[in-house]
Design a protein around this nucleic acid. Structure first.
Lengths: 107, 107
DNA sequence: TTCACATACTTCGCCGGACGATATATCGTC
DNA sequence: GACGATATATCGTCCGGCGAAGTATGTGAA
């Protein structure tokens, strides 16, 4: 699972949201680091819905503009939790081997 | 940075290694989870060398078979450490919001 | 001895995902 | 009226992952 995909799911942990809201949440949650490109987002949304990790929660029309809300499915929830564990484990492969004295210094 | 790329760099934290050795180390370090495909590896090796994150350490001929050893550059070392920190932070976005009662259960 | 397997590197081609650009539409602000 | 934020959709490109095939040698088993 790629980082953009992961942050889409993570954003939905807070509850259903629509595309633009997901972009904003992902940016917040990552401290401004992750900025989902629109092409990435809508592509990911279609793919995740096809994989059953998210589902359309409801569709609203707000001031003439359509809004499609997505929510995490059970599969999506467990997938993002599993993914977080995987990343933590992967991070430890490096952080567990680096002594404070190293940093950018020699081996 | 993708996972395969990350594990290539992580494998080189233990010291210089050649292609096949990197595949084996990555598999060890990830507890058998990460299996670098050869096409992925050699593509990544070229790319990382081009980006200056790794460099050819030496080339040997062992029993008629060529072996090209790569080592991490300073840039590569700091990049993989930075990447590990990034993954840890990303993981916390999810793990920090999940209460023990949740798991695969509802919100 | 022959066959399979592990070691070891290279190249090719497909596919999927990331992402910028573009188009469309409304509302509020300057 | 122009611009920026909100909001969605689609298209095309580029890059990376990865399996497959090709080449070559040593080892151990059948």
């Amino acid at each position: 699972m790629s980082e953009p995909t992961y942050f889409v799911l993570a954003a939905l942990l807070d509850g259903p949201s629509h595309g633009y809201g997901i972009i904003k949440r992902a940016e917040e949650q990552s401290g401004g680091r992750v900025r989902l490109a629109v092409g990435t987002l809508y592509g990911a949304l279609d793919r995740l819905a096809g994989d059953g990790l998210i589902a359309v929660d409801r569709e609203e029309t707000v001031q003439g503009r359509p809004r499609r809300y997505y929510r995490l499915t059970e599969d999506g929830r467990s997938a993002v939790i599993r993914e977080a564990a995987r990343m933590e484990q992967a991070a430890r492969v490096v952080t567990g081997r680096i002594t404070p004295a190293m940093g950018t210094a020699q081996a």
